[in-house]
Design a protein around this nucleic acid. Sequence first.
DNA 1: GACTTGATCCCG
DNA 2: GGGATCAAGTCC
Length: 230
Amino acid sequence: MSDVLPRAFFARPVLDVARDLLGCSFTFGGVGGRLVEVEAYRADDPASHSFRGRTARNAVMFGPPGQLYVYFTMGLHFCVNVVCEGEGQAAAVLLRALEPTVGLGAMRRRRGFDDPRRLCSGPAKLTQALAITRDANGLSACGADGPPAGHEGSSRDGDERGPCDDDDPRACFAAREGGVARDPAAWARGAPRIVATPRVGVTAGAATPWRFVDADSVFLSRPLPRAARP
DNA sequence: GACTTGATCCCG
DNA sequence: GGGATCAAGTCC
């Protein structure tokens, strides 16, 4: 089984979570890949859906960390975030692009073409390729916090069993290759070269550089400025 | 630049 | 309550 990131990973400042997610894997229904582009949104940030307080649409953002916040936009697209920080903080990381590694066949069928570079190179492309829609809103995507690895098999406390710690995960984040999901000291280890840029498509807070990308990836939603390229 | 739907806003 | 507004996007 993969090295599933626990809730504690997401219960941190959203800017830290965003950076530490790059290079980690995200799968939904067994389809997904390596995260290469994300954006951070915070409640004190005019670009965030949570900026003006809780509404029916953004309620999940105010819930516990580690859940998916899915919203519908532009009349036809879904975008997916993972909720961060503490319950009530209403911060989240938008998943903007990933490098497809598992379920390429399903992604190609859903997107209607083959080129892996374009399958998940944008937030709404990614949800289409992974078949994420409004029913995934509020879904838990983290493993249970608990004793360190090696102490598995002990009793679960009944209710809150995450979708990732059983054998039929729907949504799941896993640590980087060689990472140790339950060791906070390892969360930043092995990160790719990261470049921060302004977020895409936002009007308020347009200059805030809270978009983080794997600078060496060819799977981004848009190329980096020449100066930032390898 | 068009497309397309619904949550939110603002007025009444 | 109801109409106007505009959106964390994608494709050509």
